[in-house]
Amino acid sequence: NKFNKEMRNAYWEILHLPNLNEEQKNAFIQSLYDDPSQSANLLAEAKKLNDAQA
């Protein structure tokens, strides 16, 4: 299933973003579980936030 793979990839990438705190990571990961079809968008948002907090 495409979403499972996308979701897993997004999950791991978000988990390893160095500039997000636990609360931010948890919020993105919760959103992933709530709507796996948004994995790519959530990952993009997480990366933007990560870069902004660098």
Results as ranks from 00 to 15, higher is better:
Q38M: 09
D34F: 10
D34R: 08
N9V: 13
I14Q: 00
L17D: 02
L15H: 08
L15S: 04
L15K: 15
P36Y: 03
N26S: 12
N4M: 03
W12L: 02
A27V: 12
A46W: 00
N41P: 15
L42F: 13
N21T: 10
A46P: 00
I29D: 00
D35H: 09
N21L: 11
A40Y: 15
N50A: 15
L49N: 08
K48L: 08
N41F: 04
P18Q: 07
E23Q: 12
A27P: 05
N19Q: 06
A40F: 14
R8F: 14
R8P: 00
K5N: 01
K48V: 13
P18N: 14
L42S: 06
A54R: 06
Q30E: 11
L20M: 08
N1L: 01
Y11S: 02
E13L: 10
E13H: 14
K2E: 15
N26F: 13
Y33I: 06
N21V: 15
D51L: 09
E13W: 08
S31W: 05
E6A: 11
Q30Y: 13
A46G: 08
L42M: 08
A54H: 09
L32R: 01
Q53K: 13
A46H: 00
K2M: 09
K47S: 07
P36V: 04
L49Q: 13
L42N: 09
N26R: 14
S31D: 05
M7A: 14
L20N: 00
K25P: 00
K25N: 04
P18Y: 09
E13S: 11
N21K: 07
A46S: 06
A40M: 13
Q24S: 12
E6D: 10
R8W: 15
F28N: 02
E6F: 01
E22F: 14
A44L: 10
N21I: 11
K48G: 10
A10K: 01
R8Y: 15
E13R: 13
Q38F: 10
E23A: 12
A10S: 04
A27Q: 14
L17N: 04
K48H: 13
Y11Q: 05
E45R: 07
K2Q: 14
